Structure formats: C-alpha cells, structure tokens
Amino acid sequence: MKKRKIPMRKDLLTNTMQPKKELVRIVVDKEKNISVDPTGKKPGRGAYVSLDPSQIKNAQEKGLIERSLGTKVPKEFYQELYSYVDHQKARKELFGDK
C-alpha cells in the first residue's frame, strides 16, 4: 500500500512544523475580519496555531497573531480562539484522532 503524504504547516506560536490536522487556521479577509477557520478553506490570509490553550495566552501577550496577519486583533477574538482550541483539545483527548 502506498504511503500517503501528510501535509505539514508551520505553527505560528511555537515556530515548528506540525501535521495540518493538529493545527487550527486563523484567517483575515479583505474587510479585515478575523475568524477561526475549522475547514481550512476560507479565502484570505491565514496562519496556523497549535491546539494548546496556554500558547494562545502567550500569543495574546506577545502580539504574535497581530504581527503575522497584519491587522489589529480584538480581545473577544482571543477568547473565541481560546475556547475553540480548548474544546478541540478536549475532544481530541476523548475521541483520539478523527
């Protein structure tokens, strides 16, 4: 059986290459709206972050996401991102790889 290639993406927070399935994409569109992109297919400039809630807090303090996307990130978005990442991490621990 042929071995499938695993798509790798660079994690913005840890600066390491990881499988795309273990990351979540953040996207900013033309109107400067920032959103979480669970499908990874929304149009716009994207960045990948790991499913580690502590890294989200660190990114907020250092302004890593703002620098990468080139726009101001509202505080509410960080809360949304933190809850999404926390939920996905818990889900992955419960159900394993899906």
Rank of each mutant, 00 (worst) to 15 (best):
G63V: 02
Q88H: 12
L51K: 12
L13T: 01
K57C: 10
Y84N: 04
M1K: 09
K57A: 14
K57I: 14
I34L: 11
I65G: 03
V28A: 07
E66N: 06
M1E: 11
E31T: 13
Q55D: 10
L23Y: 02
D11E: 11
N58I: 06
R9D: 05
R4V: 13
L13K: 01
Y48K: 13
T39Y: 07
K10F: 05
S35H: 08
G40N: 10
G63Q: 03
R91E: 15
P7Y: 06
S35E: 12
V27K: 06
R4F: 14
R25K: 14
L69K: 01
I6E: 04
T16N: 12
M1H: 11
D11F: 07
D29H: 02
G46V: 08
K5Y: 12
K10A: 07
K62L: 04
I56Q: 05
R67G: 15
P74T: 00
D37P: 05
G70W: 08
V49T: 04
Y78V: 00
P53H: 07
N15G: 10
N58S: 13
N33A: 12
Y48T: 15
D86A: 11
K75P: 06
R4W: 10
G40S: 12
R4Q: 10
T71I: 13
R9P: 05
M17N: 15
V28M: 04
L23T: 03
K21M: 09
S83G: 00
E66A: 12
E76R: 07
V24F: 04
N58T: 13
V27H: 03
S68M: 08
K72Q: 05
D11W: 09
A90Q: 13
R9L: 02
M8S: 08
M1R: 09
I65N: 01
R91V: 14
K62E: 02
K32T: 06
A59D: 02
E31W: 02
L23W: 03
P53E: 06
K21G: 09
L81W: 01
G63P: 05
V85Y: 01
V36F: 06
S54L: 07
K57E: 15
S35A: 14
R25P: 10
Y78A: 00
M1F: 13
G44M: 09
K41T: 15
H87G: 12
I6N: 00
I26C: 01
K10L: 08
T39M: 11
K2W: 11
H87Q: 14
M8V: 07
E93W: 11
K41S: 13
K32C: 07
A59M: 03
K41W: 08
I34R: 04
P43A: 14
Q88E: 14
K75L: 07
K41N: 15
G40C: 09
I65S: 03
S83R: 14
Q79A: 13
L69V: 02
G70M: 09
E22P: 01
F77M: 02
V49F: 00
L13S: 03
R4I: 15
K32F: 08
S35I: 04
K30H: 06
K20P: 03
K89W: 08
V36T: 09
K5R: 13
D29E: 07
S50P: 05
N33I: 08
P53T: 03
V24D: 05
K21Q: 09
A90K: 15
P53K: 06
Y82A: 02
P43T: 14
E22Y: 05
I26G: 00
K2P: 08
V27P: 00
L64K: 15
L64H: 14
K62V: 01
E76V: 04
